[in-house]
């Protein structure tokens, strides 16, 4: 694969020589390869002509859906109400540009795993952002832990990828996770609807779903990437241990045996299944990723299977 992008001939590798070790040359080559592959997937599309699942208030009618509290009463279809005695609102295809928001969990729990989940997540975020920019979308970045730690306003062009990578490179991981607070804060600060990709391990507490709900209720289309380290999926623990929580420092004295490992596995499966079920119910995209799988494979799989990026 060459070092130039197929689009405008700008060499990403050359432009990013000074970026941190996280985004080394090999990584940048992978981005270029992803760009080519993504380009094939977006072939024939032009800016502003995305058929996004997001429904808005344009001129072209798209669909109906049940009325939810808070919907604009002007879009209620009274004819249907007269016939069915049920409230439905009319949806119209949006003709707005798509804004891609990548929200990256930077809590202390993301420091775990080999490779670190945070590194993996940053690469994943960079890849998605790069592909988004390549497809003429606007791409914004936000890093959160207990709340929004840092944000990068939406970028418009691929030339700004350097700033994006720089932003990602300098972000530290630490602190506790408060998804509700962080995601609600993001929703309140970004009223413009868009596609929000949340990359997190979702292990930081019970507020994941309420936080995601806040994004959903703000009109964002939502995609959840639950990233787990291989050591979390199949923990290689045994014997008498002091388990230290990376976020709050609490210590759990435990003797790990096959029974406890099995119970942990059941609990983890339950948490993952709950999140998957929630996403399915809420109309979100859900992708479970392991750090053992190369991030580019995740991206491509996502691009091929996800309904937002077809």
């Amino acid at each position: 694969m060459g070092s130039r992008s197929p689009g405008d001939g700008i060499s990403v590798s050359a432009a990013l020589d000074e970026t941190a070790l996280l985004f080394d040359t090999a990584f940048l080559r992978k981005l270029e390869r992803l760009e080519v592959l993504a380009g094939k997937l977006f072939r024939g599309l032009i800016r502003g002509e995305h058929v996004t699942p997001r429904r808005g208030h344009g001129l072209e009618f798209a669909d109906f859906r049940r009325y939810r509290p808070g919907d604009d009463l002007r879009y209620i279809d009274w004819n249907i109400f007269a016939r069915l005695d049920q409230l439905f609102v009319k949806l119209y295809a949006s003709d707005e540009d798509l804004t891609l928001h990548v929200l990256l969990d930077a809590s202390a729990s993301m420091n775990f795993g080999t490779p670190r989940k945070f590194d993996y997540a940053r690469r994943l975020a960079a890849a998605l952002a790069y592909i988004g920019l390549s497809n003429l979308d606007r791409v914004g970045l936000a890093v959160f832990s207990e709340t929004l730690d840092a944000t990068l306003p939406p970028l418009k062009t691929r030339h700004q990828i350097t700033a994006l990578l720089d932003f990602l490179s300098v972000q530290p991981a630490g602190g506790r996770t408060d998804l509700t607070r962080a995601l609600q804060a993001f929703a309140s600060r970004n009223p413009n609807r868009g596609l929000v990709v949340v990359i997190s391990d979702l292990l930081g507490g019970d507020g994941a779903q309420s936080g995601l709900d806040a994004l959903r209720y703000s009109g964002h289309d939502l995609m959840v990437v639950q990233l787990l380290a291989e050591q979390e999926i199949a923990p290689p623990l045994d014997g008498a241990l002091n388990l230290v929580d990376a976020e709050d420092g609490s210590v759990l004295k435990v003797t790990v045996d096959a029974t406890l490992r099995e119970l942990y596995q059941q609990r983890l499966d339950g948490v993952l299944a709950d999140m998957e079920q929630y996403c399915r119910r809420a109309g979100c995209e859900y992708l479970r990723a392991s750090t053992a799988v190369p991030f580019e494979d995740v991206v491509l799989k996502y691009l091929r299977q996800g309904r937002f990026w077809r």
Binding site: A108, S109, M110, N111, F112, G113, K117, D201, L203, G204, G205, A229, E232, P235, L237, G239, A240, L241, N242, L243, V244, D245, A246, E247, S250, V251, L252, K253, V254, L260, L263, Y264, Q266, R267, L268, V271
Partner: peptide
């Protein structure tokens, strides 16, 4: 003698326990 292991979260272990 217990070995100390740092985990991303001990919540699931607490529940398993």
């Amino acid at each position: 003698r217990r070995r100390e292991v740092v985990l991303s979260s001990t919540a699931l272990w607490r529940e398993a326990l």
